[in-house]
Amino acid sequence: MFDTLKEIHISDIDIKDERYRISSESENIAFLARSIKEMGLMNPPVVRPMNDGKFILISGFNRIKALQYNNESKVRVRPTDTEIEDYHCLLFAVAALAFRRPLTQVELIISVKRLSRYLDRENMAKMSPAVFNTQLAQGFIDDLVNIGSLPDPALELIHTGQLSLKSAKRISHLDMDAISFFLDIFSKIRASASVQLELIQNILETAAREGVHPKSLFQELNIPDPLDDETADMTVRTHCFRTLVFEQRYPVLSRTRQRIQDKIASIKLPGTIKLIPSENFESRKYSISFTVKNHDEFEKNIQHLTDALENKTLREILDS
C-alpha cells in the first residue's frame, strides 16, 4: 500500500485538496513549526500521488503548514501506491489520527460520515477498534451519521461546546426548518448539555401543544424573542431564554412559583432564614431553615420567626 519515504517539493502538494482531512486546522502552528525546526520531522506526512505528478495529503496537514511557516521547500513524505482507492486513503487518514490521539467529537462525526459512503454500520462497528482506536456501537454510528448530516453551523457548535452530541442527535430527527431554528438558538446561547436538552424538549412540546411549528412558536404566541437582544451578555441571554421557554411550557406552574416567591419576599425575612416551598408544590410542606454561628444569632433568628407569626402573608402562604 505504501512506497518508501520520498523527498518531494512542498509546492507539488495540492494543499487545497482536503478530501482526506479529518482534523481541524490548528489556529496556531508556531509550536509545531518550532519543534520541527529544532527536532526534525518525526512522522512524515502521508500523500497520495496523482496522475499529474502532484500529490494530495492523506495525513499531515498541520505538519505541511508548519513547514511552510518555516519556509521549507521540500519534505520527506510517505507516498501511497498509485492504485490506492479512495476508501483506503480515508481509512488511513482516520486511523493515523485516531492512533495518535483520541478523536474529537467533530473529527469522529466527520470520519464516520465519510466512511459511511463505503461501509454499512455493521461493518464499520466491526472495524472500529482498528480504525477508530475504540469500539463504536452500531446505534452510535447511526447517530453520528445523522449528526454529520446536520447543516452548518452544527459541527462548529459541537466544536465550541454550544451543541452537545445528545442535543444534536435530538434535533437531527426534525425537519430542516426546525433544525435551522435550533441551530440558530444554540449559536446565540451557551448552555450545559442538560439545559440544551431541556430547551429542545420544552420548545418542541410547547409547539406541539399549541399546534404550531417550533420556528414560529414565538411569533404565534406573540412573545419577543430574547435572543434578538444582541446587547445582552450570553449568560444573561441564556438565562432569560431558558426562563421564557419554561414559562411557555409550564405557564401556570411558572406563575404560581413567581406569586409564592413574591409573597415570601414580602415577608421580609432576613437573608439568613430561608422559607422554601416543596418541589412543584405537590406537597404542602414548606421547609424553614437558618444558619447560625453562635447563640446570639440563633436567638435573633428565632425572634425574626416569632415576629413573622404576626405576618398575614405568612399565614396565607402556609394555610393556602
Partner: peptide, 22 residues
C-alpha cells in the same frame, strides 16, 4: 397526541401528574 405535553410535574410517587392547582 399532545396529551403528555400538559403541565405535568413529578408526583411524590414518581408518576407524572398535572400541576396540583390544575
Amino acid at each position: 397526541s399532545t396529551l403528555c405535553y400538559g403541565e405535568f410535574i413529578l408526583g411524590l410517587d414518581n408518576k407524572m401528574r398535572y400541576f396540583k392547582p390544575l
